[in-house]
Each structure stands twice: as structure tokens, then as C-alpha cells.
Computed example of a mutant assay.
Amino acid sequence: MPATTSGLLLHLSGPLQAWGERSRFNQRDTSTAPTRSGLIGMIAAALGRRRDEPIDDLAELRFTIRIDRPGTLLRDFHTVGGGMPRHLTVITAEGKRRSAETATLTSDRYYLADAAFTVLATASDPALLETCARALRRPHWPPYLGRRSCPPDAPLVLTELTQDPVPVLIDLPLARKGGRRRTIPVEFRSDTPLTHHAWSADSETASADQVYTEIQDEPVSFSPEHRRYRTRPVYRTHLNLPVDQCAGYGIGYLNALLDHPAITESPAPA
């Protein structure tokens, strides 16, 4: 009897990422890690679902995010409509055209530059994970990292797991450079409390108590006319991982991944 899928490992990296958390009007922020709404939206797009289609089944997914590289916050001063004749300027809420003096709309848009994340997706239904994996490998619509201007720079799916997934996430090579210290602090964010013997019994990986916060990014509907989100918990944990896990960038990181047992021993994709 074949082993069932216990988790799905994703790698999210690219020149720019933008995971909006509290964006309003002309201020378009980004969270410092992928949001739940952003991840579910990416998977829904890969499955070919339109914004007004239900996403109830995807609410069963649980995500644990490892911040390999936090990246650098980048601000883009954005303008729309400047220098255009009045009949081509942005339409107001009343359906009128803006005057030449008010035609230019400005906004601040924030991005994460050169960030990298490893994401573990789990669910009680292995078939759901397998369906998501197939869609992300062959997406209906091209995936992007939060905003359409942020394409990934590598395939999203690392592997499908059949063993206990959390230890694999902790042990997987880090897409970052190391240093002279024996360990390096790495942040994890999860939908549920992150617990495992891997750090409770080893002083090298011991962490402080998990920090509980809340964020309003649980998507109920992506419909443009009825977009709705719920508040959900976020658990933040810092682990001190061995600096030897740092595999650098580019070819060095890819080679370290290909040599890792979780990748080499993973089942062939369907």
C-alpha cells in the first residue's frame, strides 16, 4: 500500500515579493512573510479558480513558514494618470473625469527584495495536498508572489512528504549564507502551535516561548464585489539552527537540496 502524502514543501523566492496585510487606498504594504490569503490565492489561481468561486476546501490547508532570508523592504513611489488628456484620466467614484490638477494619483507600494521562504502545507486530507501539488507544478494561471509584478524565480514545489513533515522543514537546507557562529536564528510562523522534540531536547535548537498574534488574512471570499477576510492566529517561533544548514544562493543551494534525503527519496510526482 503506497504511503499517503503528509505535507507539501514549497520554496518561494524571487527578485520581489509583496504580501499585502493591511493595504488601504494609496498605501500598499507588505507583510514580512507570506500571508495565508496570499498562499491560498496562489493555489486557487493554480487550480484555475476564478475570484468568485468558492475556496472552502482550501481553508483546510495549514501553513508553516520558515523565513530563510527576510529580504530588504523596498518602497516604490507609484504614479497613475499623470500627463494624460482629461478624457483618459482616472474615473472618479461619481463617474466623472478628474481635472488636470488632480489627474495624477500617487501611492506607496512596498516590496520584499531578495527574500526567500520555505513553506510547509499540511491537511487532514492527503488528496487535497496531492491536488494542490499537481496544480502548482502545472498551474492554470501563472503563479506570482503576492502581486502580479512578482513572479517566482524557481519552481514552487520542492517535494511531497510521506513522513512527519515538521522535522523535514526544520532540517532542510537554508537559502542563505552562514557566518562564523555555530548556530543561526531562524523564524517560523505557523497557523497552529509549532511543537516538536527537535528543539525541546536539544539546547542548540532551543527557542523562546512562541509568540501568539492575530491577523485578518483568512480569506472567506476573493470576489471583487464581496471580498471578505476573517481574523486567525499566528504563532511565531525562533529556532537556533546549525550554521551548516546555510547553503548559500543559486547553484550551491540547489545542490544542497538535491542531496537532501527528503528530496532524493521523495516519490515521483503524479
Score class of each variant (00 low, 15 high):
L16G: 02
D244F: 01
L47P: 03
D171T: 10
A256R: 12
V211G: 01
I184D: 05
Q245K: 13
H11N: 05
Q17H: 10
P185M: 11
D76P: 04
W19I: 08
I215F: 05
Y235A: 01
L145P: 06
L105G: 13
D202Y: 13
A198H: 09
D114C: 11
T89Q: 14
P165L: 07
E225G: 07
T162F: 04
G179L: 04
R109H: 05
L16E: 00
F117E: 09
Q27N: 14
L128V: 09
T237M: 06
I215Y: 01
D125I: 03
E101N: 04
Q163E: 15
L241F: 11
A262Q: 07
I43R: 03
E204D: 14
A154W: 00
V168N: 03
F77C: 08
T5E: 02
D125H: 12
D202M: 05
V243F: 00
G146A: 04
I184Y: 03
R236T: 15
N26E: 15
L254T: 12
A100V: 10
R109F: 06
T122G: 10
T131S: 10
A135G: 02
A268M: 10
Q216S: 06
D202C: 09
L169W: 03
R24E: 14
R181G: 09
Y249H: 15
G179K: 06
A198D: 09
Y235G: 04
R227H: 15
R230L: 13
R49V: 01
T205S: 12
D68W: 01
R148S: 09
C246Y: 00
D244E: 14
H11P: 00
L172M: 06
H260A: 11
E60H: 11
L74S: 00
Q17G: 09
T89I: 06
G41W: 14
V234S: 07
Y111T: 10
L158C: 03
S124H: 12
C150E: 05
A44K: 10
T32W: 10
L156V: 09
R134E: 11
K96V: 00
Y249K: 13
A115S: 15
D108A: 11
F117T: 09
R50C: 12
A3H: 10
L10D: 04
A59P: 00
L73C: 07
P267F: 13
Y249N: 12
H226M: 08
R138W: 01
S107M: 11
T231S: 13
G48T: 07
N240C: 12
A206L: 12
D52E: 14
E265T: 09
F117K: 10
D68M: 08
E160W: 04
T237W: 00
E225C: 02
P193G: 02
R109A: 01
F77I: 10
R147V: 01
P139E: 05
Y110E: 11
D209H: 08
V90F: 01
L88S: 07
R232S: 11
A3D: 12
I170F: 04
A59N: 08
E225D: 15
H78G: 03
P233I: 06
R51C: 04
T79S: 14
P267R: 13
